[in-house]
């Protein structure tokens, strides 16, 4: 292309500046977790590990973390089952209302979280009369997590084609054997990627959680939000934030390993 040297330099500068804007706030959080001044005045006053040990000792924080993990695992398990079933139906069959199925799967994530949140809490509360608790949180999270598994499995099925499964049937394997020995092993990494996304989505969610969690259930995001406006807790919240930034490298690493040479399958 006939871009001048100047415009190339400007475009590259825009890219570098944009990436800097993306990473500076995260770096500030990391730095502040070692800031000895509890109001986080800039520049940091001194170095301390005190907040990290305070966070480690906080039992409320530990409970919230455990609740989040349980909610995430529950929602991911349901999303894996429902998302895989729906993906098989949509990819392998032609039927009336096929488009509508895709739409209804995307809908919970396309609509504002607050709409999904109050619709579900209203149903639990007034229609079904179910008390709000961890179970209702899992149901709420699973609802919007299905789409991540669905998308990953759908893309994998599209790429897989039917040849190997047909070959397996020709060689005498029945429906279940073919699924166990041929289809499932080929889908495994797609399931892992979809499940990872579903867990991350659930782990980070606050809006639907706010409306579906009862008084006693506190996930990590809810704990953070509750403590965000308490000046005394600010340093501990900051440590949690810093830790979450560091931990987020793990799923990225796994996702990259899974997608191999193709960075677009996310």
């Amino acid at each position: 292309m006939n871009l001048s040297r100047t415009s190339k330099i400007l475009l590259r500068a825009a890219l570098v500046a944009g990436l800097a804007v993306i990473y500076v706030p995260l770096a500030v959080v990391l730095l502040n977790s070692f800031n000895s001044d509890r109001t986080f005045a800039w520049p940091p006053a001194g170095f301390t590990l005190h907040w990290w040990s305070a966070a480690w000792d906080s039992s409320g924080l530990r409970d919230a973390l455990w609740t989040s993990i349980r909610a995430g695992l529950g929602a991911t398990a349901i999303a894996l089952v429902l998302g895989t079933m729906a993906a098989f139906a949509v990819q392998r069959y032609r039927f009336f209302g096929r488009e509508a199925v895709s739409l209804v799967i995307v809908l919970p994530i396309a609509l504002p979280g607050i709409v999904t949140g109050i619709a579900l809490s209203n149903t639990f509360h007034t229609v079904l009369g179910v008390p709000l608790g961890l179970l209702t949180v899992i149901v709420g999270h699973a609802t919007f997590c299905v789409v991540t598994v669905y998308n990953n499995v759908l893309a994998r099925l599209r790429r897989m084609g039917l040849n190997l499964e047909e070959a397996s049937a020709d060689l005498g394997a029945d429906t279940f054997t073919t699924f166990r020995l041929v289809t499932f092993p080929m889908m495994r990494s797609a399931l892992l990627a979809g499940g990872l996304l579903a867990f991350a989505l659930s782990f980070d969610e606050i809006i639907v959680t706010t409306f579906t969690a009862g008084a006693g259930v506190r996930t990590l995001p809810i704990w953070i939000f509750e403590n965000l406006f308490r000046p005394n807790q600010a340093p501990v919240v900051n440590v949690v934030a810093a830790a979450l930034i560091l931990v987020s490298v793990i799923p990225i690493y796994i996702a990259q390993r899974l997608s191999g040479g193709d960075p677009h399958t996310h």
Partner: peptide, 23 residues
Amino acid sequence: LVIAVLTPLWASYLVKAYAWRVM
């Protein structure tokens, strides 16, 4: 570069909003 752009999506939404509150 794609990884660099994707990475912050994995960091918590709340944490990022909080980072701006601090800044």
